[in-house]
Amino acid sequence: MAGRLEGKVAVITGGCSGIGLGTVELFVAEGAKVVAADIQDEKGAMLEARFGEQVRYAHCDVTSEDDIVAALNLADSAFGGLDILFNNAGISDRMGAITEVTAEGWDWIFSVLVRGPALGMKHAAPMMIARGGGSIINTASIAGLQAGFGPIAYSTAKAGVIHMSRVAAAQLSRQKVRVNAICPGLIATSIFGASLGLPREVADQMAARVEQGAASVQPVPKAGLPDDIAQAALYLASDASAFVSGTHLVVDGGITVGGRHSWDTASPSPFVQMFGEDSPFAPPADPAPL
């Protein structure tokens, strides 16, 4: 049976680790030819060796417009065109108050998280239109939806990615180029540590800590993994989502459904704290097991 992306060509930024790597692996398994665009040259060479003719690596710093154009052009020269762009490369910064941000740090976050995807869309859209259409997917975050899930610059940038995706969809959908965003929740990757400048080994340990602890802080009792986001990207990249454009898909284990009291009966709601355990606001008891 043919894969869901058979005959498609994709460029995935940040494609050598974390969510990007998981998506490269899944897209290849579904029949796509993929350009993995990243700054991790050694890992890029390993990907090419692993997947042979199905994957090419492009050194791509998404703050460089020339690098972005080169990665997209490689998709054309190596595989004959472009159908899918996954603007996934990401960084974060330290948690801190608005009074602690620096102009340089703010600009760096926005350069990677907003300007990079904007330039990717700018140069990818004409290539897709020439092919009769395509799909652009931008990695946003639940931090762009609610406070408390990321640093202020990162969170503001991700909110910008969500709205930028909506506006770009309005401009491009009539030309059969769909644009959507994915909002991951707590996903076990090394971005948390890597963005703090920690050595790769330490950053990987932080990813393991996220995997161990995430199940206890969200309604779905399992850790979010790169493949969870890759599966969402596959849906948005494939013809299964042909009628989907200008929206954002939240993939977060339910962590944004509400406060902890909304899904954990051991955590009292603010109403219970005000009016007592016997109030009409008290949550129902856990159902008996079947």
Rank of each mutant, 00 (worst) to 15 (best):
V251D: 06
D67Y: 02
F192H: 14
W106C: 10
A282I: 08
Q273M: 14
P280T: 00
E42R: 14
G90E: 02
L290G: 15
S216T: 10
R178G: 01
S111T: 05
Y235I: 12
A49N: 06
W108P: 01
A118E: 14
K8A: 09
G148H: 11
A266I: 02
L186C: 06
A78M: 05
A214N: 11
A288H: 10
E42H: 11
F275I: 09
P284V: 05
N88V: 07
G116P: 07
F149A: 13
V250P: 09
I142K: 04
I19G: 02
A203R: 09
C60D: 02
V217W: 12
V34H: 03
V257S: 13
Q212K: 13
R115Y: 04
V114Y: 14
S195C: 05
F79E: 05
Q212G: 00
R115K: 15
I137C: 05
A188N: 11
D83N: 15
F243Q: 12
G144H: 02
D278H: 14
S279M: 08
Y154S: 14
E30K: 08
V210P: 04
V69H: 06
A140I: 01
L82I: 13
A49R: 13
M128R: 06
L196C: 11
A125W: 06
V55I: 12
A266W: 07
A237T: 10
A285Y: 03
A203K: 09
V35E: 07
N73T: 15
A215W: 11
A140D: 08
A32M: 00
S92C: 12
P270N: 01
A188C: 08
I84C: 02
P226F: 10
T13V: 03
A153D: 14
I109V: 15
Q273H: 13
S173G: 15
G3C: 12
G7R: 05
A266H: 01
A159W: 08
G134L: 07
V244F: 04
D67L: 09
D227Y: 12
P184Y: 09
G197T: 07
I191H: 03
I129H: 02
R56L: 13
V9D: 09
D204Q: 14
H261G: 11
K33P: 01
D41C: 07
T139Y: 07
F110N: 14
S238R: 00
V55W: 08
V177C: 10
L113K: 13
L47F: 04
A71Q: 12
V244I: 09
A208C: 06
M46T: 15
I137W: 01
Y57N: 00
V24Y: 00
L225Y: 09
A153M: 14
A203N: 09
L74F: 06
T247C: 10
R260P: 04
P284E: 07
L119E: 12
A70E: 12
A37C: 09
L172T: 02
A32C: 04
